[in-house]
Design a protein around this nucleic acid. Structure first.
Lengths: 253, 253
DNA sequence: GTTGACCCTGACGCTGCGTGATGATTTACG
DNA sequence: CGTAAATCATCACGCAGCGTCAGGGTCAAC
């Protein structure tokens, strides 16, 4: 006759587990000591082994009770049904793993885009470098914040996210290009400029007017930006810079 | 703005689930109607999609909250760690499935043994047939019960179980054979006979004295039994019958 | 104004124990 | 033999993720 702790040590389960099995009638000790201690027999121990075996196989305690208590229970049937269930789970797991792999790749795709050519053909580094030239004070004020915040925001972007941002950018450029004849102060142009700043704020960093103005300068000062933007229409880079300045002048005070 | 039911229908989750997500702060509706109705925005719907996506991948709600709420959260890291976890689960499942398959085979093995040659070289059918000849009354009394009870008990036996029973049987036969010179009433012989009856009771059916006596007769009447038992020692079958009769005479009244 | 569809907030149930809390009992040690 | 350390017992809450009533407002339609 074993006491709970002994049973627990012999079988590797916890005392609480034995209490639990007693509670639910899965393994009731053979006898009790006068003081109410649970006393388990060898038969009890054997049953416990069986319980643990079926538990290992993923059966629920209720099912185990059925299997062990009903002598007429068709064990083979139960095992085969259980096997089906396990195989389904396995298949499900496999397809989930595939999805996870795809997701990882898509994240990596996003990261690559971010590193190489996210910002309409230029990297954040380029912008950052300009900022440094543009104003040491501004850099102290915003530079570090921009980089870190952008990284935070863009960390999780997927290819689709980038494609989405890209197409929105294109749209804005296109609209502004179509209104170049009306001058940088044109209402529609100004509205698009506002959208542009908002898009940057939403997707990259908190684009203050100071920074936005500097970004406009960048479009003209950095020939790579200029070239890229002028692809949409000749002179768009310069026009954009002017329009952004007007926008900032109007809003910053 | 969608009300709960609409959200539920749009996303396929239950209303209770949305309540739950609200409770745990995973998806709090954008606004509330004056009467306290939950009103979900499109943004809420999008977030719900994301939640369901990660849930599909097996993430817990707490983790999903982390992933969605902390912009700096390293999604790739999380996905890769999660993948590891999933693969471990999958491997575990695979080995469990193997074990289940083995168990099924072992059950089948047991069934085969039961059908073919379980009972020291004879099937239950043989015994049953004899019973029918032996006594129609006894058959009415016990026959059906024996078969069904035996089937119940032996249903779950594995090869090892059978081997175990077999070796115990051998042992008993051997001991009795070694005491044949002392006559069927010898104490040790009688003890072994008792063990034999107990073994039958434990493993096959409730072996009453009537039945046990009949079984003794069977050993002599059926040449297949006789031959098989006499393998251990010449005349053992007949000696066993006598010893079993003595045993039954002593105990049944 | 009444019906029916929908909304709300509790609150318990399920699985398989973990983890105390609190008190009795047994065992070990000096 | 007395006391401290183990071990025992019985509550009972906690966790995950909702399902499922229960009891009671709200809203639009007829």
């Amino acid at each position: 006759m074993y006491k709970v702790k002994e049973m627990a040590d012999l079988s590797g389960v916890s005392v609480r587990t034995l209490h639990h099995y007693d509670e639910i009638g899965l393994l009731i000790p053979d006898s009790f000591s006068p003081s109410g201690y649970r006393l388990y027999s060898k038969t009890n121990l054997e049953r416990l082994q069986q319980i643990l075996f079926f538990k290992e196989l993923g059966f629920g305690l209720v099912q185990i009770k059925e299997i062990l208590d009903q002598p007429g229970f068709d064990r083979k049937e139960a095992m085969m049904a259980h096997k089906e269930l396990l195989i389904k789970r396995k298949n499900r797991l496999e397809s989930i793993i595939e999805t996870v792999e795809k997701t990882i790749q898509s994240i990596e795709g996003g990261l690559k885009m971010k590193e190489k050519e996210m910002f309409d053909g230029f990297s954040m580094e380029d912008i950052q470098k300009h900022k440094e030239k543009y104003s040491k004070e501004a850099r102290k004020k915003y530079g570090a914040a921009i980089v870190s915040e952008t990284e935070r925001k863009t960390d999780s972007y997927t290819k689709e996210d980038w494609a989405n941002i890209s197409s929105k950018t294109e749209e804005i450029y296109k609209k502004i290009a179509s209104r170049m004849d009306y001058g940088p102060e044109d209402e529609e142009v100004q509205q698009e400029v506002g959208k542009w700043r908002q898009l940057i704020t939403d997707n990259f960093y908190d684009c203050t007017f100071d920074i936005f103005r500097g970004l406009g300068d960048l479009y003209v000062d950095d020939p790579r930006f200029t070239k890229n933007i002028d692809k949409h229409k000749k002179g768009l880079a310069s026009f954009l810079k002017d329009a952004m300045h007007v926008y900032c002048d109007r809003h910053s005070k």
